[in-house]
Design a protein around this nucleic acid. Sequence first.
RNA 1: GCCACCGUAGCUCAACGGCAGAGCAUACGCUUCGUAAGCGUGAGGUUAAGGGUUCAAAUCCCUUCGGUGGCUCCA
Length: 619
Amino acid sequence: MHIRHGECPCDLNNDGANMSQRYEESRLYRIRHSAAHIMAEAMLERFPEALIAIGPPIEDGFYYDFSLPRAITEEDLQWVENRMKEIVRENHPFTYREVTPDEARAQFQGQPFKLELIEDLVNGREDENGNRIAEPAAKISFYTQDTFTDLCRGPHVPATGEINPDALSITFKLPAGAYWRGDEKRPQLTRIYGTAFETKPELDEYLHALEEAKKRDHRILGEKLDLFTFSPLVGKGLALWKPAGAMLRHTLETWLRDLLIERGYRPVVTPHIANVNLYKTSGHYPYYSASQYAPIQVDEEEFMLKPMNCPHHIMIYKSEMHSYRELPLRYSEFGTVYRYEKSGELTGLTRVRGFTQDDAHIFVTPDQLLNEFKEVVRFFQHVVGTLGITEFRARVGTRDPESDKFVGDDALWDAAAGAIVQACQELGLPHTVEPGEAAFYGPKLDFVLRDVLKREWQLGTVQVDYVLPARFELEYVAEDGTRKRPIMIHRALFGSVERFVAILIEHFAGVFPAWLSPVQALLIPITDRHIEYANSVADKLRARGLRVEIDASKNRMQAKIAAGRERHIPYLLIMGDRDAQNGTVSVRLRTDEDLGALPVDEFVTLAANVISSKSLELK
RNA sequence: GCCACCGUAGCUCAACGGCAGAGCAUACGCUUCGUAAGCGUGAGGUUAAGGGUUCAAAUCCCUUCGGUGGCUCCA
């Protein structure tokens, strides 16, 4: 649910940017942190043998992790919530105390997670490769309220009574699983989420917004608007696009294909499978081995469903000799790839096993890198700008110098990362730098958007790669006649069409701008005798490129209007005797605005303008 | 993959150890109507699949499949 949050404050580091700085100093933050301690107290009353781990505030609330002797039930959670409110009303002070390591160890005898945290505070902390990631803490402190003492550096509210019991809630009535210290090799704990606000109306508003958000969920709207479906018989994570969804997707793809060609991209087409040796040469093989469909053995050869398009495009580059005069050389493809994601990771269209990347690989000289990179970023800004999407963040993913997940020369990595940051600065693009988020072959700039449940998803990405050109010994002939190595830019703007459509569905709540609407005008003949006229109007509209549908059912006009509204069709064209006589259509917008009777040509001109301009308005 | 929960008609849901139901959608009649849902009739189910407990299972237990929330991982 909450992707980016600080780690336990008892447990140091916080990866949030300056935005969260103010939150961490806020009263709300102290309230939630205090509520987490109160949750732990209540839980220990309910489960005296529970082991307690950590319990930080997060963006919309707080959580606490426990190791429990049995599965927790809804009744348990209700009991805990009630008990938390009691503790609040009893108004116990939060008292701060600095302790020695031995005092700390004594306090948490039998609490192995806390003891581990104490040892880390005492000794500092190292990662699995033995690299120091935290220095020993200057001091160890406790906070106590009522019967409960936690290892904690604070801050807290002065007393539990500072918290408004009516604005306190266990957020999700289902508990969650979470690994100790986020490591799937370590024990799995039960995480209980809660939230707290200063006032009850704020809590109510939050819970209401959560309910409203669920209605925009692309999985719900995908069903309601007949956009896509899944079938266990086809396989999980493999989307089936229904006609309306396929039309939406087709419209987006057509739009982007045209933009690509305008910008000098050259379409290529590559197959869905390839010999595994291709991926061994590229170096992708070991990195994707855990998330691949099993290779297909044919005679003596092994083939794989392609998990990425890069090596294919590289082989096209290698099929001929290139001059510096050709660069930047841009190959683009809507390339469908398959990745065997772990089953629990699949979600609607945002995380699937077969998806289509709007992929492109650009081969550039070192001199061209910065400018080309900026062009790609501007391209992305144009695409999301057209759709009215402004809510995204830019993340520069760099190599984690301590990890062995990344290959290639240090100097080149630094050069590439430097170019990315420089490009962002020159474009005035706010961004965060996050070590460890790079591709294995190079650093990248990702555009990250949130779904209605506030989960973050990476969509567009621009990556700088010196490694694959070297692995495949790519060359171009330079001005001086020598052979030089190009740099590759990997880029996708939608990221994956599936994920992008999911975000679009939620962004528009299913109410797409006219140019994207699967059906742009619904023709509503008032009675059967108007169907013929409706057909003649439909022909005219189709001739002008409009996507139309006639509702020739036996329903009454009112029911046809209701059905069209449900589908958020932009234009409802009602036609009866008057219209047939006068050659008009009575135009009702999905906003319920009535434009009255318009001559057919006038309506076509209006709609065609709206559609061709990709307007977010309907007139 | 892991922890927890869920799976009843195409969709949304009811029945919660004792004869499997409703609304919407669909089919067929009637209705032909000027801006948010006309009336009627029918069809549609091995209650995800398989096994077990029980006189009796949609309901309890087990396994598998699928979904949801979270974690891990990722476009």
